[in-house]
Write a protein that binds this DNA or RNA. Structure first.
Lengths: 128, 128
DNA sequence: GTATCATATGAGCATATATTCATATGTTTT
DNA sequence: AAAACATATGAATATATGCTCATATGATAC
């Protein structure tokens, strides 16, 4: 019990020879190749944005073409407010951009890579 | 006010000519090409699994090589329990699998596509 | 057997999320 | 000007999430 619940306060890697694994020597190497914190945060934020059914639907629809809030609301069968909130979310992470024409606002994808990531993932899930 | 807050109860697409957009006619077409609910749920679940810094770190480490819980705990500088919980999460969505050797359990990626998705996304975020 | 180690798990808690409701903002029409 | 429309936003609420703590399980060593 107790063991490494406080891993944080250890010298880290220095006294790890006493542990369970067969990789003692090169935890340091692995660590050196790990992503830095900012990159990790960005990755997570990006995936999280796609990690919700409503947002997946929005992206999926916009993958086809630019659409206004109202149409998205109809397509998703959701209230205008909910759709608007999620569009703001997607806008904040720069997955989506908007274009105003009179009183209506058209949304479209703001990133070429989304399609790629989306498709790779979809194909993956299909062949599994 | 009130407008389409109840989009759900509409005939949908039938009486949409009265709305804001310029795409009235083919909302039906767009809808036809949208992903079905199960696929959407799977996509979201998949992305959600990657949508957390801790899990991104775990995947990132396992991308390099198989590792036991203890080593992951040291690498991430997190308690063993937290790591174990997240590993279970990743196992539930089949991103990760385990191999027992005595009392230690080695985790590794359970999916070839993860690396691809991970790298595409990372490259994307870097060049932005 | 007992002790120790590596991992897993359930409960509890604090925070984050997604949606709804009511209302605000900004635009067009009359 | 007022009315109607399209979208945005803040507050409230219900649910989900991630971590910690304590403890359980399962394996090895003594």
């Amino acid at each position: 019990m107790e063991q490494l619940e406080k891993a944080v306060e250890q010298p880290l890697l220095e006294e790890c020879e006493a542990s369970c694994h067969g990789t003692e020597a090169d935890l340091r190497t692995i660590r050196a190749q790990m992503l830095d914190e900012p990159s990790i945060a960005e990755m997570a934020e990006w995936f999280k944005a796609l990690g919700d059914p409503t947002r997946v639907k929005l992206i999926g629809a916009l993958l086809q073409q630019e659409l206004c809030v109202h149409d998205l609301s109809v397509l998703l069968e959701m209230g205008q407010s909910a759709v608007s909130h999620q569009l703001r979310y997607l806008r904040n992470v720069r997955m989506v951009k908007r274009r105003k024409v009179g009183k209506t606002v058209y949304y479209s994808l703001d990133d070429a890579h989304i399609a790629e990531i989306f498709h790779v993932t979809y194909e993956h899930l299909k062949h599994k």
